[in-house]
């Protein structure tokens, strides 16, 4: 296991006591692309900050490639690459120098640093902008430079904190490609996100986090299967009156795994789809069916099932 987290807790004592991380146990195996999925404020960034030696835990232990990040942070940093949420490129240095100096910090000789910088600029399609300053770059480009810089010293694990926050859809897809390529190079990637598509699309395994705790941890497909349904029907009803009656009726229907109430109506988890739609509509019509949405189970569904809340809330 390349990343091992045991009983991690982080409490911020202040005017308001905040428990940011509340007992996280986790391990990531080498070469994995691992995702922390959760809403804002779930404790993802704090967990990453502790793993990357930028915050001290209140309790618990984190080891990266066997090195304790609290006991020997400077050794651990050799194994870690970090791309934080915000742009931390050195504004006084060009793109080339940003990567070049990073290599020097990690003990490369000047010649090796030059070679490595040139190769990375090539690999991330940044060669043309080598002499530009960070302030002249778009968000997507800056993100690419940050990733290139973060892996310049050949870290074993790359931590990406909300890598697609603030990126336009096109840059986001380019970033996903870049991350997939890293994995081919054998770098373990741990990322945090509150976009369920991102976790679903990119990650081998996903831990869903809320209020500083891991709610569930598995592969995206296993998580989606755990919902136990092929389709989800969201019913938007005019009146919430008599809903229990409808719920009861639908639950007995063949092909329906479960039904739950929502703020606007009902959510039906369907096992099969054969002829079910018309029966659902038929049953719901007398209750003032306004609208009906059909979705396949997603990680969002899993999150809603576990917390009763939306990821965006």
């Amino acid at each position: 296991m390349i990343v091992e987290i045991e009983g991690l807790r982080k409490v911020y004592d202040g005017k308001q006591r905040v428990v940011a991380v509340d007992g996280i146990d986790l391990s990531v195996h080498e070469g994995a692309l691992y995702g922390f999925l959760g809403p804002n404020g779930a404790g993802k960034t704090t967990t990453i900050s502790i793993c990357t030696t930028r915050a001290l835990p209140t309790a618990g232990r984190v080891r990266i490639a066997g090195i304790d990040v609290v006991k020997s942070p400077s050794q651990a940093r050799r194994c870690i690459g970090v791309v934080p949420q915000y742009n931390t490129l050195d504004r006084s240095c060009t793109i080339y120098e940003n990567i070049h100096f990073h290599c020097l910090f990690f003990g490369f000789s000047r010649i090796d640093a030059k070679k490595r910088t040139e190769k990375l600029l090539e690999q991330f399609h940044l060669a043309e902008r080598a002499e530009a300053y960070p302030s002249q770059l778009s968000g997507g480009l800056a993100q690419r430079v940050q990733i290139a810089r973060a892996i310049a010293h050949h870290p074993k694990v790359l931590f990406l904190d909300e890598p697609s926050a603030g990126l336009d859809p096109q840059s986001r897809i380019a970033m996903w490609d870049a991350v997939r390529n890293l994995r081919e190079e054998g770098i373990t990637v741990v990322l945090t996100t509150h976009y369920m598509e991102e976790a679903d699309e990119l990650c081998d395994r996903v831990a869903i986090i809320d209020h500083g705790k891991i709610l569930v941890e598995d592969t995206p497909s296993a998580l989606k299967n755990s919902v136990g349904a092929q389709r989800i029907y969201e019913l938007d009803l005019r009146s919430m009156h008599d809903i229990p009656q409808l719920l009861h009726k639908l639950e007995r229907q063949q092909g329906i795994a479960s039904v739950e109430t929502t703020q606007r109506g009902l959510r039906i988890f369907a096992e099969g789809t054969e002829g079910l739609l018309s029966e659902v509509v038929h049953a719901a019509n007398p209750y003032g069916l306004k609208d009906l949405t059909i979705t396949e189970p997603s990680l969002e569904t899993v999150f809603i099932r576990l917390t009763g809340r939306d990821l965006r809330e």
Partner: peptide, 20 residues
């Protein structure tokens, strides 16, 4: 003041393999 403030650009240097 600038590096701690808006840009946090000190971060990469803090992440050097060196005691902070």
């Amino acid at each position: 003041a600038q590096e701690f403030g808006i840009t946090r650009e000190i971060d990469d240097r803090v992440m050097c393999p060196l005691p902070v």
